[in-house]
Amino acid sequence: MSRPLLTIVAFASALALPSLAHSRQVTLITQLENYGGDGAYLAVYLTDAKGAYARTLWVAGGKAKYYKHLADWNRLSARDAKRLDGVTGASVGAGRSLEVTADLADALIDAGYEIRIDAAAEDMRDSPSEIRVPLSTQNAAKPHPGKRYIQNLTYQLR
């Protein structure tokens, strides 16, 4: 199956499934390092088992001019016209943490989906896919370290 088609299928199922099946609430807590720079732009999103974009959970940072620095998310989600609907907020200061809550369909959990976070800060290096953590019950409630800006990501499933 071609990649665009996969993306569409994955995207459609991510949207459709919550209404068909039970959903679970996921709470993600992203703790930033003290990297000594301006507030970080973060894109928190899901990709499916094939690495195709599924859904944006949160985008921290409001200037569209800088979204190209969240390179992976910006590229993968380019076709999702609603990628920013209701999921944007302020950039996150160094050393601060970001808490994001989302409802996810049961079918997305333990199904090879990944939580990914792209990070960037001004005058510093972009860090696409700073975090890639499989969305599974096994990985929940454990801190997952990031590469540069993110100290760790912890998510809880309810």
Partner: peptide, 18 residues
């Protein structure tokens, strides 16, 4: 104007290439 989003700098979305 570019920072406040009044002027667009990007050439469009980036291509999805592998």
């Amino acid at each position: 104007a570019t920072t406040l989003g009044l002027v667009q700098l990007d050439a469009g979305s980036e291509p999805d290439v592998v």
